[in-house]
Structure formats: structure tokens, C-alpha cells
Design a protein around this nucleic acid. Sequence first.
DNA 1: GAGAAAAAGATTGTTGACAATTCAATGAAG
DNA 2: CTTCATTGAATTGTCAACAATCTTTTTCTC
Lengths: 252, 252
Amino acid sequence: MAKLPNARQTATATATSQTLGRGGRGQPVADETIFARVYGAIVERRLEPGTKLGEEALCETFGVSRAQIRRVLLNLAHAKLVELRPNRGAYVAQPSVREARHVFEARRAVEAAVVERAADRMTEEMFESLAAIVREEHKAQERSDKQAAIRLSGDFHLRLAQIAGNEVLSSFLQELVSRTSLIIAAYGMTSDSGCSHDDHWTVARALRDGDAAAAIAHMNQHLRFIEEPLNFVTEADPLVDLKTILGPPAES
Amino acid sequence: MAKLPNARQTATATATSQTLGRGGRGQPVADETIFARVYGAIVERRLEPGTKLGEEALCETFGVSRAQIRRVLLNLAHAKLVELRPNRGAYVAQPSVREARHVFEARRAVEAAVVERAADRMTEEMFESLAAIVREEHKAQERSDKQAAIRLSGDFHLRLAQIAGNEVLSSFLQELVSRTSLIIAAYGMTSDSGCSHDDHWTVARALRDGDAAAAIAHMNQHLRFIEEPLNFVTEADPLVDLKTILGPPAES
DNA sequence: GAGAAAAAGATTGTTGACAATTCAATGAAG
DNA sequence: CTTCATTGAATTGTCAACAATCTTTTTCTC
């Protein structure tokens, strides 16, 4: 576009390129593909909350037009992973403490409903698919592959929702799981990655044994164990412009 | 745009204009305004499921550009009130029976969580605001103002969520309430409008008395009373193209 | 030198024209 | 008369240039 891209542009473009990888130029890239790439990068915490997602940079990264990038950013904003500030661009969302608490509270409610329904429909086959995920998760943790561990941990919860057999609850949970990951990125200590696979085992076993009440209780505790260690005092840098807080520069 | 709009265009444009009203040309119309108008028209069942929402027609109706309409339609699709068929346009969604059942099941779970939390935080003042809505709803029903009754019934549930004080649960419930209205439009008999205000009174009273368990039970029954009379056998005209069901016209 | 106004640069938002796809009507063949 | 290909109109999807807005740098004054 610009014949001589200046320093800033190039910097931003390569920064996101490093995290997102380059998009194939050969065939047209679908919206879903771009969405998935950025979504994954945020959920796996390769993109820090507050990072600016410039349109031009994303265009170059994926080799597509601005219109397409714009649509994807709107979708990501719906998923609450990206914040759109009018005339200022798109940023990886920075959930507030209040928002984080609400997400966890809602998640406990939704997960409880999911577990209850999953208990009814659980078959040997389904349990096996769950167990496979937990085993993979364990392996990923052992080799310190944090990104795989995060992904598989999410997969566990989403598989549970799939077993529960309600697509609406599934979509709610998907939103909550990804937002949880963003919250951990914002408020988590660097050490803990979120879910421990042990908790997942405990829940899965209770479900296999048909003990719905125990499974719900374990899931609840699991979620509290994730929320508890978060550092909600630090309130990730506000980065809000003072104007919106203090109002316009006095006009009477 | 076209110098001589043909019969079809004008027909569609005026059809939606009658339901949506004309947009003010004087000042720029915000996305949210257009969204709210179409959203309201669908939720209040003035737009039938399956109705085509042509871009040109909407542009003329609200006096805005196609890009803006496109954005609003994307938002409505996220709210699951509009279905976007690639290269074919936007239609008021026609929820399947399966989807309808999932919505009701999810709604029972979310409403239970909402009521439980609302019970804890209920104050005299909050109860009064709830009661005011129920009274308004009653009046609307008495004067057979179906659209107002639908709106106020939704307001009751949404106010409950607001009292519960969790914005995430609120947004989930908002989606579920609007989708419920669409489901009733698709499968409801013409007679019943959905919520009876009596059920709302029962729930509100239990909450005022601090009896969370009773409130949840009443809410559950309320929702079942809405779901039960729906005619899930009729499966609102499929309108799916046979190609997607039968596969491409044989290719070996 | 500090602070404020002004200009330049860069980024987002919008518009209108063009391309691609779908849908309906017409006509030909079985 | 039905079925299938063809053609044309209408609608959606895409793109690139233009306008508006914000950010940064420069310049001017005190």
C-alpha cells in the first residue's frame, strides 16, 4: 500500500506476524481461519491483553483486505476477546475485576448445569473421549507445553458440554472458557497455567460413577481453585484515557 | 440508487417500512438505533420468521448505507435472531425444534442461577421496581396490547437479572429471552402470547419473602408452562434447499 | 525550558463502483 | 406436459479511493 512503509508500521506488522504466523497467499483465506488464528493467539495467551490489533498490520499478516479484517474484529469483539474503541482501533480486551468476577460466577452456574446433564447421558465411549483429553493434557503439562495445556484444558470443558448435548449451553461455555483464559492472562501469576489436570480427573471419575452431585461439587471447587490465586488487586493497567474519566476539559 | 426501482424492490422496501417505520433522514442514524428497531420488530413478532431482510430495502427504510446495514445484520446474526446465508441474504431466523428445546433447557438453568442470586440481593426498592413491571404487564394484557405485553414480560426477566447483579448472566438471559420470543413466533398458537403475569407475581412474591427455593421452583414451572403448549410437531416450514440435504447432483 | 497551540502523519470510518453469485423467466428438447 | 439448459435481472460480496479522526511532532510564546 504505502510504497515506503515507515518504521512504526513495519514494527507492528512483524510483531503480530511473529505471534500469529503468516497467512497463505496462495488461496483465499476464509474469515473463520483468520478468526481462529487470532482467537487461538489470545486464548493461548500469546497476545497480551491491551495489545493493539491494527487493521493494516493484520491485513499484511494474513494477506487479505481491510474489509475482511474488520469483519473478523467485529466477531472477536462479540466474543468479548477484543475491545473496539471507535476511531482508535481494536485491542485485545482487558477485562475489569468486576467483569472477571462475573465471568467466574456465571461459569460456575453454567458448568453446574452442564455437568448435571452430562451425568445423565454419559456412556463408556464418551467417558473414554474425556479421559483421552485429560491424558493428553497431562502429557502437555509434563513437557511444559503451556499452550497445548491451555488448549486441552479448554477442550475438556467443551467436550463435557458436548456430552451434555445442549448447543446453547455449549456456546455459552465456550465464551466463558475463552474469557477465563483472558482473565488469567490479565491477573494470573506467571507460574500457574490455570487448570490442573488432577481436578479434571476427579470430575471425570465422578461422572463415570454416575455421581452427579459429587461431579458438580468437584467442578465448583475446581473453578474456585482457578479463581482464588488470581491477583485481583493489581487491576491490570487501566490504559483508559483520563478524558473519559474526568470529563471534557471544563466547559461552562 | 436505481433510477426506476422495479416492482419487487419497492414491495420489499415498503413491507419492511410498514413494520419498522421510517428512519429519520435529518441526523445520522447510529448502528444501535437500527439494531434496536429490527431487534424490537423481531422480538415483538412483527416480523415473521423466514422474512427476508434485503440490504437495499433496509437501506431505504433507514436511509443509511449498505455497509452500515451489513454491520447491523452481522450483529443480529450474533444475537441468533437473523440467519445469514452466504450470497443469499439475511433472513429472520427460523429456530429448529432441536434449537428451541436447547434454548428452553439453557434458559431454565440460567434463570435458576439468576433467581438464586436475586434472592440474596433483593431489597424493598428492587422489589418495587419488579412489581411495577408486573403491574404494567397486567395492564397491557388487559387492553390486549400484545406487543407491550411481550416487551414488559421480557423486562421482568431482565430486571431480575439486573437485580442478580451479574452482567454476564444478564447478557445470556437477554439472548435467551429474545430467542424464546422468536421460538414462540415460530411454534406458538396465535392465542397465547407467552408469559402470564400471574406466574411473574408468584415468582416476585417468593423473592420478596426471601424464599429462594420456592422462587426457583415457580420460575421453572413458569418456563415449562411456556414451552409446553408450543406445537413442536409442525416444524415451521423447513425452507432448506434440498441440495444441502440430498448432496450435489451426483458426481462420479 | 515548560506549556500550549498548530501542523503533519498515520489510522480508522465511509462511500461508491465493480465483480461474483443467485434466482426467475424463457425457450428447447424429450 | 414435464424437465432441463440458457439467459437476464437482481442481489450480495469485494475492493480501492476518499473523508474524518486521532496521535505525534513541531513550533511558537511566555
